[in-house]
Amino acid sequence: MSDVLKKITFTLNGKERTVEVDVRKSLLDVLRDDLELTGSKKGCEVGECGACAVMINGESIDSCIYLAVWVDGKEVRTIEGIEKDGKLSEMQQAFVDEGAIQCGFCTAGLVVSATALEERGEKMSKDEMKKELSGHLCRCTGYHNIASAVDKVINK
């Protein structure tokens, strides 16, 4: 094996995967380029916009500034792993119903982070929720309907 390649084993959207990754590559690049999971988007590549967020061991993290080799032995969930039994999750459905989607480029990251928040199982004020999700930039929606969608699910 070349010195820039390393074999890692991790759980990706519920399935164990063993892949050889370039140690210099971000998790986002491995997901998008090597594993062809292009739902996670590249908006800045430096952790400023949140479009690439995925869950690592249940925590939402910008995959563009997380090296792929670091997920060895961990559990990763991407937007492609959020649906339940082929149906939209409650959070995804809330995004659809509340009109929280426009161009859709920030949507995947936001749904992942909102799902991580939902799975923490805490109820929170709208301001607390906004603070939790403020690492995500969106230029289309003014966040209004996104906040409504997330609030609807976590404070139901």
Partner: peptide, 23 residues
């Protein structure tokens, strides 16, 4: 009518392909 977006499901599941998503 407040019809839901035509492309909402494609976008909320990560299936919608943007110009940088084609392999």
């Amino acid at each position: 009518k407040p019809l839901k977006r035509y492309d909402a499901a494609a976008k909320v599941t990560g299936k919608a392909k943007y110009a940088g998503d084609f392999h």
